[in-house]
């Protein structure tokens, strides 16, 4: 519903195992990061591609913002916090350039 004609094809399909890049502004210099810190470096599973949207990390600096594929990615909750109930999950919108095959 949101895919524009110039949208790149999704690299990951529903069900793909992915790992979120372990990347931090402290190691890169000034940047805008749209990926919550608590899932960085974590294993997740792609629920579905959500369409392609202008990269917010460029928009934040008023740079030309190419469209990037956005995904809903699902994480088991207890491993993230070392607490919680097995089976509970957190689902996060994450752009493709933050995801690696796992």
């Amino acid at each position: 519903m949101s895919a524009a004609p110039d949208s790149p094809a999704p690299r990951f399909a529903a069900g793909a195992q992915v790992r979120v890049k372990d990347d931090w502004p402290e190691t890169r210099g000034p940047c805008h990061i749209r990926t919550p810190y608590y899932v960085r470096g974590r294993l997740g599973r792609v629920v579905r591609p959500l369409g392609a949207f202008p990269n917010p990390e460029d928009l934040a600096f008023a740079r030309p913002a190419p469209r990037r594929q956005l995904y809903h990615v699902l994480f088991e909750q207890p491993p993230i916090w070392n607490e919680g109930k097995a089976g509970d999950t957190v689902m996060v919108e994450i752009f493709e350039h933050w995801l690696e095959e796992a």
């Binding site: 949101s2 749209r34 990926t35 919550p36 959500l50 369409g51 949207f53 917010p56 956005l70 699902l74 909750q77 916090w81 607490e83 919680g84 109930k85 089976g87 509970d88 999950t89 957190v90 689902m91 996060v92 919108e93 994450i94 752009f95």
Partner: peptide
């Protein structure tokens, strides 16, 4: 981090076998 504790404070009781899926709204 602790959705079940938050729900309990709202008085929202879920059956034990109901899984909670927190949706973190981060993008478009």
């Amino acid at each position: 981090r602790e959705p079940r504790a938050v729900l309990a404070e709202w008085g929202t009781q879920l059956a034990d076998d109901v899984e909670i899926r927190v949706v973190d709204s981060t993008a478009d």
